[in-house]
Amino acid sequence: MSDTPIIELHGLTKRFAIEQRHYGLKNILLHLPQYIHDRANLRWFTALDNVTFSVKRGERVGLIGHNGCGKTTLLSVIGGVYRRYQGEVHVRGRISMMLALRAGFCPELSGRENILLNGVLQGRTRAEMKALEEEIIDFADIGPFIDSPVCQYSSGMLARLGFGIATAIEPEILLVDEAMAVGDASFKKKCGERIQRLLSQGTTLFLVSHNMADIKKYCTRVIKLDHGKVIFDGSVEHLA
């Protein structure tokens, strides 16, 4: 284990092409010069701009910044969803992601079926998920709805189920994106207990939140993004 960072990013840059106009074949042929000009001058949106940092095993990192600054893109790259980028990314541990609501759920399947689907796709075997099922259902606390399709769930129920799965599979790295924002007080309290339990087991936490109280409560280190650049990286106390 030692000192090798669990997450290592070096010069990570992620750009998305902004599609200006959609060309069908007819338009390509009729407006060929314009088309070639547009293709040659694609406008790019730089979501992450030369991001470099590393995270040690067991560190608790809060990720902050205004809307559209690249937080979710960063989590998506670390979580292995976006796989084309410039720069280097090394992730050395099993990840569990809780990216926004409806995270990795199949809307037509029941909550119970989604526990199995989501957990297995995140790297747990079926037998392991079967063993965790009761604990997750207990945490999610959605009563008889657990056997109804998740498209009928309220946002609170979805968040509880997603959070229950993401934490029950005991990841080495937990990525949480705004998951707690929708919950009521008792849900937040339960989430807090879960996160503290994982932290005491040495899980590395990556928490995205606009709520500074949450960041201060769970995180020791804060990274602030602005237009895809890291503009602050340091301990919570030093954040202006």
Binding site: L99, G104, N118, L121
Partner: peptide, 9 residues
């Protein structure tokens, strides 16, 4: 698509 955007299998 919902699975592809949220998990890395």
């Amino acid at each position: 698509s919902t699975l592809l955007k949220k998990t890395s299998f």
